[in-house]
Amino acid sequence: MLAPFLDRMVTRNIPMRFNAMQALQFFEVFVVDIPGKVMDLEYASGPDIGYDTCDRWEGLPPDFIKKWEDYRKPPIAFSTSVLRWICSFDRMCYIVPPVRHFFLRVTLIPSRISLFLRKLLSLPHPS
């Protein structure tokens, strides 16, 4: 039942994420409508269950899901899933970041060249 609150706290969309004041205000209003017996339920936890892999919305009533669907976090991007899979192999978590940084630097080269040319063309000509 806390799925909308938790998803808005951990969403990857930073502008949509709750700040501390918004989270407190939402929680104080939201928790009043949740029955005590639901709040006392225990949920499975373990090393394989993470905040970004578990489905907090599973088993919730359809009308509740419909009401709060705007608060549901978007699915993990395919590229993120691929990078996580690659990093799951031995030592790849040490290799992937430098490779990504290299390709970031390579993609910045055209913009640096154009900046250099603009500065070069804007220099005063010696008379």
Rank of each mutant, 00 (worst) to 15 (best):
T11P: 03
I109S: 12
F103I: 04
M1L: 08
V96P: 06
F26R: 06
Y51Q: 10
P35F: 10
I95F: 01
E28N: 11
P124M: 10
N19F: 04
Y94E: 07
V10G: 06
R56L: 13
I34F: 00
R72S: 05
I113E: 04
R91S: 12
D33S: 14
M9H: 04
E69Q: 15
Y43W: 09
P98N: 07
M39K: 15
L2A: 12
R112P: 06
A23S: 13
L60K: 13
F89R: 15
W85D: 12
F102C: 14
K66R: 11
F18G: 05
A3R: 14
F102Q: 08
A20L: 13
L121S: 14
F78K: 10
V31W: 15
V32Y: 08
V106H: 00
S127I: 12
S79G: 00
I86D: 04
K66D: 08
K73H: 10
L117V: 11
C93G: 07
D7E: 04
E28Q: 14
V82A: 05
D90S: 04
F5A: 02
W85L: 12
F78P: 00
R84E: 12
A20R: 11
S88R: 11
T53H: 04
I34V: 10
P62C: 04
T107Q: 12
W85M: 10
R100I: 11
D70T: 07
F30N: 09
I14K: 14
S114G: 02
V32W: 12
A77S: 10
I86H: 09
F103S: 01
I14T: 13
R17S: 02
P97E: 05
Q22V: 00
M21T: 13
K73P: 01
D70L: 04
V96K: 09
S81K: 15
S45N: 09
P35Q: 13
T107G: 03
K67R: 15
M1E: 05
I34E: 08
L83E: 12
F89Q: 10
I76H: 03
M39E: 07
M16V: 06
G50Q: 07
R118I: 05
W85R: 11
F30R: 13
L41G: 03
S81Y: 05
Q22M: 03
K67Y: 09
M92C: 12
L104A: 15
L24A: 10
V82D: 03
F64M: 00
K37V: 07
L104W: 00
C54R: 15
L108D: 14
K119E: 13
S127M: 11
P126Q: 02
L120E: 10
L2Q: 09
S88W: 09
I14H: 06
A23V: 03
Q25K: 10
M1Y: 10
H125A: 08
R8A: 02
F89E: 00
Q25F: 01
C54W: 02
M1F: 11
F102V: 08
